[in-house]
Amino acid sequence: MSVLQDREHIAHTIGGLLVLLVATILSVYKPKGLTKYGWRKRMKLKNKTDITTYLRPHWVKVTGITTIGMLLLIFILIIVIQVI
């Protein structure tokens, strides 16, 4: 339990989690819209000339909700550790 009370260990743990979180967000994030390849592929599949809507895939929403939940969990753990 003394490891949890040492501020240096907590800081390194939180820092490591933040680095992993940033790497995950950057690997998942994609700006709204399509690349030229994706646009051509969609045009071939749907045979339409005007495709203006882009829906985010379900996994992007799930990843975002999971990330927010993880951040809330980290902050709750920090508060609990400081109280103890």
Rank of each mutant, 00 (worst) to 15 (best):
G38W: 02
L34C: 02
Q82N: 15
I25G: 00
K44M: 09
R56I: 08
P31V: 04
W39L: 14
V60F: 14
V3S: 12
L20M: 10
L71N: 02
W39I: 08
K46R: 11
V60Q: 11
Q82M: 15
V19K: 14
K41C: 03
R7N: 09
I68L: 12
V60Y: 12
N47T: 03
G69S: 10
K41A: 08
L21D: 07
P31Y: 02
I84G: 13
T13L: 13
T13F: 09
L77I: 08
T67F: 00
G16C: 03
G16L: 05
T66D: 00
I78G: 03
V22P: 01
T67R: 01
G15S: 10
I68C: 04
L26Y: 05
L17T: 05
H12M: 12
L34I: 00
T63D: 01
T35F: 01
E8H: 12
V60G: 01
L34R: 08
F75G: 01
Y37P: 00
V60K: 06
L18S: 09
T49L: 06
M70E: 01
R7M: 13
L34Q: 05
T49P: 00
A11T: 13
H58S: 10
D6N: 15
L72D: 02
V60I: 12
T13I: 06
I76D: 05
L72G: 10
T24I: 05
T66W: 04
M70N: 04
R40F: 08
V22G: 00
I81G: 03
T24S: 14
K32V: 14
P57V: 03
L71T: 09
T52M: 08
T53Y: 12
R56H: 07
I14W: 03
H12Q: 14
K44L: 13
V28T: 08
L21N: 06
N47K: 14
M43P: 00
T49V: 05
G33C: 03
D6M: 09
V22E: 07
T63N: 06
V60L: 11
G69M: 05
M1T: 07
H12L: 15
S2C: 04
Y37C: 00
L71Y: 00
L45Q: 10
L55H: 10
E8C: 07
L18W: 06
K44S: 07
R40T: 08
L73N: 05
S2I: 07
I78K: 02
I25E: 04
Q82C: 11
G69V: 04
L21H: 06
M1L: 11
T24Q: 10
S27P: 00
L72I: 12
F75H: 07
K48F: 01
L77K: 03
R42S: 06
P57M: 02
Q5N: 13
M43I: 10
I81V: 15
G15R: 08
L77M: 09
V22D: 05
L55R: 14
G15I: 02
I84Y: 11
V22T: 10
R42T: 05
